[in-house]
Nucleic acid binder design. Structure first.
Lengths: 346, 346
DNA sequence: TTGTAAGCGTTATCAA
DNA sequence: TTGATAACGCTTACAA
């Protein structure tokens, strides 16, 4: 229980003295208990209890090199998607035993690089990267087990949602809803991030069915207020009143913007008018908690995280076996999204 | 940059051999650079670069006992309040240099205790506790620097929002809105958690002004779905149609339930009817992003976290100076909330 | 089944 | 201003 005043930490040596075994035997008690005589195991167990021994993993790490710590870099834990993923990652502790040193919110390469240096100094066994300030080429150069989720991943192993399929599914659902005009609301995206697949899925589906579509792109900034004003502008300038008599299918590339669209329509009409259909992306909790539960494309957070951990622990194991990480063969896992039809579509 | 194939880690010894200094001098370069001859400092700097030295904090920790790691225990990072606080805590890295080992989601004492044992094994310098499975008495018994935020805190140092004042402010605002009946919607709360102050603030204000009030309590469970059904039941059974002709002021003890109330009203009436006023608690992002921005009582996350870190780092410093933590004198900081009036009140 | 002794890569204490 | 040497608390051959 409590550590007494001024008491020094109890060490293996103390247990050894007390039990008249050697340090080695105490170490074995923890790491290879089956190799001890049952009676002696018992003695040590009692000694540990009476002397109030507490493990010291730092010493163990220095001796065997295994920290059992993974570094986690995320842009934030504020946003639905990242908090969802981070939560699931932390919960893998029960299965894998890895602890997580977490850094959140690096906005520049410099800051992120500093975080990584810290993590490496702590001898983390691997890195999970959700943030996107540092190019994958540089990440690969650290030569440490590493996997990314939903970010640019050319030179590193990664797990991504099949964003293209998501775009196809979303657009397909609007198509089945008999929309007349298909509107993509988006923040301008670079073509090398996984999320761009959503745009391609939309465009290809529109082309395939010869649909009347619009891409409405406004930079949505980094804060909620900026996003609200961008989406509001997008709606007012390019959607509301622009297609009288036509049924409008709106595909928002994030649930956040879908919610804003829905809220604006509600404030204006007191409901979701029948000539509007909306679908978002991410299946964040907020999409379900909106005034009307919003249809969305669900990223399978559990599967994304499970897959990421599998890839990462494989790399960690290989490294332990002395094999270097093969940079020329990054693994890119792709997880199918799930169409989640709720109240903003039929 | 990259670590070459099969290359062993570069150590102080390597730098020492290369520069023909001793390990000690290399150590000094990092810890007391001013005590080195400038020219030699220069030499070492170059050696570090050419040999690609990377810090090893594990060895440093074993030698000097300072991990610069704080353990963080949170119920989740999914919910507005906890993710807000966790985010701010992680960002104190820039100011304090502490890294965070994060555990989320312990639902039972046993699990949480396991987490704490791990953290102690890693020799964390302190603990920040947001979760509430383990009684404060036990937390105090670990004899480690520790501070809690918004949880039962009888035997430990803590930082809490002035929940009582929040309850008073919220009820006062509804009073100023000329409501006729005052309804508290709540999950049954134990009286020893800080949040119960909100209830007392409500009750005292109602008593002071001789208001007609109701306490509507339904267990809200642990998932969003459970909360929705509890709040919906509360509304249908005890509020809607129960006070015809009266202006209803609803005080929800969390933004989550306030949002659900607002959504239900919107679905039913297409707007927030003029005989309803709503105020929530927490100022979570979601409260602002609701169909109508919701009035709420804001917990000052920045101040809560700053204060918590001050208290914790004080304890850490005192412990380094050899003083034991005075369990008989836990510090309880109380941070005033801020009334944030938005569209669901006048 | 148990013990001896040499690490692991730093920092701290004395000396010089 | 620099160096030798002993910690720090554990693991891991190798021996017995």
């Amino acid at each position: 229980m409590a550590r007494e005043k001024g008491e020094k930490n109890v060490t293996f040596q103390d247990i050894a003295n007390y039990t008249r075994f050697s340090k080695t035997t105490i170490s074995r008690y923890f790491n290879h208990p089956e190799s001890l005589a049952p009676a002696n195991r018992q003695k040590i167990e009692e000694a540990l209890a009476t002397l109030h021994y507490n493990e010291n993993k730092v010493a163990r790490i220095l001796a065997n090199g295994q920290t059992e710590i993974i570094g986690l870099l995320t842009p934030n834990i504020y946003n639905g998607f990242y908090s969802m993923i981070t939560e699931k990652i932390l919960q893998t502790y029960e299965r894998y035993g890895f602890k997580f040193l977490v850094f959140s919110g690096a906005e520049t390469e410099g800051v992120e690089r500093k975080y990584i240096r810290e993590l490496l100094a702590y001898q983390v066994e691997g890195l999970i990267v959700l943030s996107h300030t540092i190019p994958s080429m540089e990440l690969a150069s650290y030569g440490i087990p590493l996997v990314s989720i939903e970010r640019e991943d050319r030179y590193i192993s990664s797990v991504n949602t099949d964003n293209y399929m998501g775009g196809v599914q979303a657009t397909g659902l609007l198509y089945k809803n008999d929309c007349d005009v298909f509107i993509l609301i988006n923040s301008p995206t670079k073509a090398d991030v996984p999320g761009y697949g959503r745009v391609r899925g939309f465009l290809d589906t529109c082309a395939e069915h010869h649909l009347d579509y619009r891409m409405v792109e406004y930079p949505m900034g980094h804060t909620y207020d900026e996003t609200v004003s961008a989406v509001t502008k997008a709606l007012e300038n390019n959607v509301l009143d622009a297609f009288p008599g036509k049924k409008k299918g709106i595909f928002c590339l994030s649930d956040t913007s879908a919610i804003i669209v829905l809220n604006q329509l509600y404030r204006r009409y007191g409901c979701l008018p029948d000539d509007y259909r909306i679908i978002g992306f991410d299946n964040t909790p907020a999409s379900r908690e909106a005034v009307l539960p919003i249809s969305t494309i669900g990223q399978q957070a559990d599967t994304l995280v499970d897959t990421a951990m599998t890839i990462l622990t494989d790399q960690i194991r290989m490294k332990k076996e002395g094999n270097e990480i093969d940079l020329s063969r990054p693994v890119h896992a792709v997880i199918p999204p799930r169409l989640i039809a709720r109240a903003t579509t039929d």
